[in-house]
């Protein structure tokens, strides 16, 4: 195979990986602050994807244009979920929280199945078959747009946590729960906001990903696992780590798909996860905490 093919596949894998990274960023933010592992993460993303599809088929509105409203819907959804169901579980044992979210995920996946049926759906944008030629590279336009949007949203998120008061309050809450209580922060509300932000991230990622892949309800669990893999690889709770992990997994998947068989790509992602868990459990960018 000529070298350009490898390069093309690598670039397209990295662009997809940026979207993965944004999705994982949502998971990482939620874990970093609330210390809850969102086992319904991929399911929340499929909800975002289906909203994008519903809007597209009804009004022909481009998912990337609708990204902000979709993220807003997911934000409200995430906020409500945390405020109503998850907050009471903050001090419960880990497995109890896990099971709660497994239950939520189960309802989401199959709710989507009831609403939209099992068949794969996608959006056909006008630029679906466009591509850019950069020297020897041929890159799908959709992937460029999606990856670019992922970078934008991630940058906005970094800025939010670094510069806004609310973002700083949330970080304070993540660093020191008791301290945050002592200085009078409303921790439960901040948690709800955080979960909302995490949900908004994954919703936005869904709006981007819907350009790249077809969606079925069954995608939820697969992407929950993928988000775990990315976040653990990058370092649970580390925001740059999530992005880096996303790129790494996107790249690995693309190369595995090219060199072996597309169906084996998840095996490579899991292989990476197992290696990281065993030899660098804090992840690539994480601090050793466990």
């Amino acid at each position: 195979m000529p070298a350009e093919i490898y390069l093309n596949v690598a670039v397209s894998g990295i662009l997809t990986g940026l979207v993965y990274g944004l999705m994982a960023l949502g998971l990482s933010v939620i874990f970093g602050v609330i210390r809850i592992v969102n086992f319904a993460h991929g399911e929340m993303m499929t909800i975002g994807m289906y909203i994008a599809i519903a809007i597209f088929s009804a009004f022909k509105l481009d998912p990337l244009v609708m990204m902000v409203p979709i993220a807003a819907v997911l934000f409200v959804f995430g906020y409500a979920l945390q405020a109503s169901l998850i907050n009471p579980f903050i001090n419960r044992p880990e497995h109890s929280q896990f099971i709660l979210l497994v239950a939520v995920a189960l309802v989401m996946v199959n709710g989507l199945l009831i609403l939209f049926g099992p068949d794969a759906k996608n959006v056909q944008t006008t630029y679906a078959f466009d591509s850019f030629l950069i020297g020897p590279l041929i890159v799908d336009a959709t992937k460029v747009y999606a990856g670019g949007a992922a970078v934008l949203v991630s940058a906005a998120l970094f800025a939010f946590f670094r510069f806004s008061h609310l973002g700083q309050a949330i970080r304070a809450c993540a660093d020191n729960y008791v301290g945050a209580l002592v200085v009078g922060l409303d921790v439960r509300r901040l948690y709800a906001l955080t979960f909302g932000i995490g949900a908004a991230c994954v919703g936005a990622a869904g709006a981007m990903l819907v350009l790249i892949i077809d969606v079925t309800p069954a995608l939820g669990p697969a992407y929950t696992l993928l988000a775990f893999i990315i976040v653990i690889t990058g370092g649970l709770g580390s925001m740059p780590g999530a992005l880096l992990g996303g790129i790494l997994i996107g790249f690995t998947e693309a190369m595995a798909g090219l060199l072996f068989s597309p169906s084996a790509k998840s095996m490579f992602a899991f292989g990476l996860l197992v290696l990281v868990l065993l030899f660098r459990p804090q992840g690539i960018m994480g601090k050793r905490a466990i």
């Binding site: 292989g271 868990l277 466990i290």
Partner: peptide
Amino acid sequence: FLAFRFRVGGVYFAILTIAFAEFARVGFDH
């Protein structure tokens, strides 16, 4: 052995068990 030797606990352990089941799924597919 891997999990307990390398101190993979709690939720990480759960994810490790999923990973191995997924391995088997893809493996048996082929």
